[in-house]
Computed example of a mutant assay.
Amino acid sequence: MHSDETQDPFDWLEAELQDTFDEDLEIEFSEPMLSMELRKIYKAQHPEMLDRKVYFKNLLRLQAELIKLQDWVQHTGAKVCVIMEGRDSAGKGGVIKRITQRLNPRVARVVALPAPSKREQSQWYFQRYVPHLPAGGEIVLFDRSWYNRAGVERVMGFATDTQVEQFFQDVPEFERMLVRSGVILLKYWFSITDEEQQLRFMMRIHDPMKQWKLSPMDLQSRIRWEQYTKAKEEMFARTNIPEAPWFIVEGNDKKRERLNCIEHLLSQIPYAESQHEKVTLPDREYNPDYERRILPDELYVPKIY
């Protein structure tokens, strides 16, 4: 057995790969809940999906880099804000889950705000998002963001034409202010085809473990596909600024989507590996006079498994 200093990194990688494989099975393996017909259709539509072993090896490598990024953010007091936008079922949640899977939740947190309350509707539009922006040493991922106004609010008629126009005039300066204040702002749009969204919606309808993901608003987004496309195109035209450009992630293959997005995110931040003091485990103190109390059986969770 090698010591920690001389252990082959590939041995560690194989062990982690197996562990990650099990974790990811838990996260994404709901296939048995689907009918055989739907599984056949999905596989037929995706003949060139990325090999699982290639996917997991690269995911592990990228997650190790994300930990280095996290350490750098903590060490330097950097402020990282990542906006995740895109059509319903385009894979935002899956990418966010893989980014945060191994990070410290005190450093990297996800913001997914509900529909605004009446009070929030009366506020300055950006006001409810501002408290969630990162402080020094934090990474914040917005699972949908202030761009709701340019998308769902506009298409569904929750915002007036005047409010949408005001948003388009304000958002470039708002984002320039964030960048000037030292925030590293990254904006991702997750793109899928019309056919892929239809297939994913069908899978959600027929999968009891995913039906919660399908809201009445999602169904409306299917009906108004073209309206959402037009809204997206104007959003890109008016908010793709040099200080905070948009990056489009193609998402028909979920595995490639996740790897490509994480790889790109890491390339956009000038992080470096932080030096750590060597950690040594201290000896435990023993008190010969201490007697451990016996706790009553009813305090213990039953051992069913």
Rank of each mutant, 00 (worst) to 15 (best):
Q101M: 09
M203A: 10
V183R: 14
M177S: 08
A108N: 02
F247Y: 12
L69I: 13
D207L: 02
Q7Y: 09
N287L: 02
K97L: 11
R222K: 11
E195D: 15
V95G: 12
P208H: 03
T100H: 02
R128L: 01
D161T: 11
K255W: 09
P32N: 13
S3R: 08
T193N: 15
H75C: 01
L25S: 00
K230E: 14
G137S: 14
I41P: 07
E298V: 02
W212R: 10
A231G: 02
K79M: 00
F167D: 15
F126H: 11
A112R: 08
F201D: 12
V279N: 10
P116W: 09
E233V: 00
E196N: 08
V73F: 02
E291T: 09
N252M: 14
L34W: 10
S30L: 13
Y286I: 12
N58K: 04
M217N: 07
V107P: 07
K232W: 03
R119W: 05
T162R: 14
P116S: 03
M36C: 10
A44G: 09
K232S: 04
A237K: 15
N240I: 06
Y125P: 09
Y55G: 01
L299P: 00
G77M: 02
V152Y: 11
D194T: 11
L178G: 04
E234P: 01
L38N: 14
I304N: 08
E277I: 00
R119S: 00
Y55I: 05
S191A: 11
P131C: 12
N287G: 01
A44T: 12
G86P: 07
K53S: 09
R224N: 12
A44M: 08
W225V: 10
P245R: 01
Y129K: 14
E291K: 10
R238G: 07
E65M: 10
W124T: 15
T6F: 08
P282K: 10
P131G: 13
H75A: 05
S181C: 04
N260E: 14
V110Y: 08
M217K: 05
V279E: 12
T162Y: 09
S122C: 15
M1E: 14
L199S: 05
P32C: 09
M156E: 01
W72T: 09
P32Y: 11
D218C: 00
F158H: 02
V54R: 14
T160L: 03
I269S: 00
R102K: 06
Y55C: 00
H46I: 07
Y125K: 09
Y305N: 13
K97S: 07
M203C: 04
R106S: 03
F158K: 01
A78G: 04
I96S: 07
F168W: 03
V301F: 03
P172H: 06
M156D: 01
I83M: 10
I262H: 07
Y129N: 11
E257S: 15
V82G: 06
T20N: 08
R222V: 04
S117E: 07
E273A: 01
E37D: 06
E173W: 08
N104V: 02
D283F: 01
K187I: 12
F247D: 14
Q123M: 15
F126L: 13
L113M: 07
V152E: 15
